[in-house]
Structure formats: C-alpha cells, structure tokens
Amino acid sequence: MTEESILVVCAANVCRSPLAELLLQRGLGSSAGITVTSGGVRATAGDTICTEVAHLHGDEAWRESADAHRAREVTAEMIEHASIVLAASRDIRGELVRLAPRSRDWMFTIKEAAHLGEGFPSAAEDRVVEYVAHLDRARSRAVPLAAPDDLGSRLRRVFSGRAPSDPTSIADRHGSRGHRDTIAEVERAVETIVAQLGGPARRSS
C-alpha cells in the first residue's frame, strides 16, 4: 500500500477546511493509512480555528486537535503531493487549478466528491487513488448537480439581485447567521465521503 493523503482547501483555513480535515481524520481513523491535512488559498498563517468548530464536539481528542490547528496558505507543492484535493467550493477549486494546473484531475469540491463517489468499492488497496479514478470516471458521464430552477425562482433572483446558489459548493458563511448551515453541509458531505472510503464514522457528544 502506498502512502495516501487528502488535502482539504477553503479560503482562510479556519472553518470549512479544518472542520472537514478533523471529521475525515476522525471518521477514517489512524489505521486507514491516509494522511489528512488542510490549507487556505487566502489564509493568514497562524490563525486559529473558528470557535464554533472548536466546540462542535466535547471530547478531549476533538478539543486537542482543534486547539492545535493553525491556518496555513496552500501551495502548489502541497497540491501536487496530495492524492486528492477537496475544495470547499467551485471558485476555490478554480483558484487551485490556476495554482497547480497539472493536478486538476484529482481536484473536486467536497460536495462533488460525495455526489460522484456513490458505488465506490471501498475494499480497494490504494483507496484514495482508486477513489479519485472512480470520481473522475463518474464526473465524465454524470449529469451535473443542479439546483431547482423554475421560471419563478429565476424571476425572483432577477428582482432580488441574488446569484443562483451552486449545488457543488459550500458557501463561506463564517461569522454570519448561516454559519451553522455551512458546518452542517460540511458534516453531511464528509460523512458520505467517509462511508464511501469504507471508514465508519464515529460519533461523539
């Protein structure tokens, strides 16, 4: 078995990506032989994890991991050495493609991976490498994720000035009333990915 790694990336590396990192570490477990790290495309080095993520679980292991987290800016080298890169949103993925274009084939948004990973045979020896191949094949033939878009919703967006939501992305609502919704979206998508990779998610209070 080769050394495999997952890199999760968001903007500041204080909420979405470290949350996904901690959840993947917890769900896959140390015996999986998969390293999980995170970074941000506009991170301020040394920033701590957001308070709500830090207090999401009350067990000592979660608190220690959350307290130890320090934001770091993602580099092309980090991307190129990852087995898979999971971006919080499609615009973040676009920035990563521009930073490391040769690695675009193993870049997906978190929600995109959860959607495309259905049916993955998790018994594969090099799980992450095989998972990427499965996602890439599914991406080439899948109908894109789409948000409901009838005439009424289009007209409401025109008159409200709001852009349509992207179903492949998890919005950055850090510090807003929608912050808990962002956390819940990350939790659901990561739980699906963990199940696809064959690591039973472990819940705690």
Rank of each mutant, 00 (worst) to 15 (best):
I170F: 10
A146T: 09
I183K: 01
L145G: 11
I183L: 13
R173K: 10
G175S: 03
Y131K: 11
G152W: 02
A142E: 12
I183Q: 01
S165I: 12
G175T: 02
T168I: 00
V129T: 15
V158I: 15
G119E: 13
S165N: 13
R139D: 05
A123D: 09
P121C: 06
H174G: 10
R162S: 15
A163T: 11
P167C: 11
L151T: 10
V158R: 15
A147T: 09
E130A: 12
R127Y: 01
V129K: 04
P164A: 10
S140L: 00
V128T: 04
H179N: 07
S122G: 11
S153T: 15
F120M: 00
A171S: 14
G161P: 06
G161E: 00
R173N: 14
D181W: 00
R157N: 12
P144S: 07
A133P: 06
S140Y: 00
R139Q: 05
S176G: 12
A138F: 03
L145W: 14
V158N: 01
I183E: 05
P167N: 09
A147S: 09
R127P: 11
R154N: 06
S122A: 14
E125D: 12
A163K: 12
V128F: 07
A133F: 03
L135S: 04
R177Q: 11
D166Q: 07
V129L: 13
G175N: 03
E125P: 15
A146P: 03
A147M: 07
R137F: 00
V129M: 02
H134Q: 06
